[in-house]
């Protein structure tokens, strides 16, 4: 699936919920199902510090695809992190670097990306794209 197909699928998943409670319960469920990041990757290098919650992001290449693993100490942020990973992980660096992420806004969760200082989510998204650009440059140089 392309990045946009995954985004569209998430948007239609969330269309089922018309109440904030069911929407956030779903995010909490996503967080619970999301595999935790192995402790060895919860390093200072991989941490993205928000004012309130911490996010860890690990990136690696696997057969020309850029993959992400991530985690957070707050459960709702963890759920949101799992969605960003679902959308962006496993695509080429080019696709990730040029991706236009619209699903958060369409689902009505854009305020979490706007809270730049508090949850580290916006910084994580920026970092994911930066990995895309970095690995893209690396493959061009090789």
């Amino acid at each position: 699936m392309t990045i946009n197909e995954i985004q569209d699928e998430l948007i239609s998943d969330f269309e089922l919920f018309d109440e904030w409670e069911s929407k956030y319960e779903y995010i909490i469920d996503l967080a619970k199902q999301f595999p935790p990041l192995e402790e060895q990757y919860k390093t200072e290098e991989n941490i993205i510090k928000g004012c309130q919650s911490r996010v860890w992001l690990n990136a690696y290449m696997e057969s020309d695809l850029l993959k992400f693993e991530a985690d957070s100490d707050a459960i709702i942020v963890r759920g949101l992190v799992s969605m960003l990973v679902k959308v962006l992980s496993g695509h080429t660096p080019e696709e990730i670097a040029s991706a236009d992420l619209y699903f958060m806004e369409r689902i009505g969760l854009h305020q979490h990306l706007a809270q730049t200082r508090s949850n580290g989510l916006a910084a994580m998204l920026k970092q994911m794209k930066a990995y895309g650009i970095a690995y893209q440059a690396k493959s061009v140089n090789q």
Binding site: Y24, Q52, A74, I76
Partner: peptide, 21 residues
């Protein structure tokens, strides 16, 4: 329970508290 989760879910209920350090 992480304080940020408390803040986010109270906000959904129209209740403004501050969370963090």
């Amino acid at each position: 329970i992480h304080h940020q989760d408390i803040g986010v879910l109270l906000d959904q209920q129209g209740i403004a508290v501050r969370t963090g350090h």
